[in-house]
């Protein structure tokens, strides 16, 4: 599962983003028990303290909860996950539009491109667990 990181952004942010992606794509299901800090560190090939920091961040927004003596679990609260999903979607959309604008596309042109792409290859909707 060797995760990819770039060395010029804080690693703990990237770890946290990757875990959120995992939750959103269903790799980590709702209520599922997460690997321990140490296991995560080995899988991702990063420092355990970094993993700990990332998990703490996710805990503070409620995506993860710790049950004493048994470990960390993905939240059961669907609403929290959906909030995260929305936020991530908005982020991706803004990124995308910024990139398209840099290439010279207007908002309208971009939307038309997207509609065309949808007609061609379906709605690109592929779940990770499909």
């Amino acid at each position: 599962m060797a995760w990819q990181f770039s060395n010029d952004k804080p690693i703990y942010v990237q770890v946290s983003d990757q875990i959120v992606s995992g939750i959103l794509t269903g790799t980590f299901k709702m209520g599922e028990k997460l690997p321990s800090v140490r296991e995560f560190a080995v899988i991702a090939a990063v420092n355990p303290n970094t993993v700990q920091k990332a998990l703490s961040e996710l805990e503070s927004v409620g995506l993860i909860e710790t049950q004493r003596n048994t470990g960390k679990y993905v939240t059961q609260e669907g609403s929290i996950i959906e909030t995260a999903r929305t936020k991530r979607g908005e982020l991706l959309a803004t990124e995308f539009l910024k990139n398209m604008a840099a290439l010279g596309y207007t908002g309208q042109q971009t939307i038309r491109l997207i509609e065309a792409a949808c007609k061609e290859g379906g709605d690109g909707h592929e779940r990770a667990d499909a």
Binding site: N7, K9, P10
Partner: peptide, 15 residues
């Protein structure tokens, strides 16, 4: 701290 440097300077330690 490595992450502090990355956060503050937007660079990798290597850079």
């Amino acid at each position: 701290s490595t992450d502090s440097l990355r956060e503050d300077l937007g660079k990798s330690i290597d850079q």
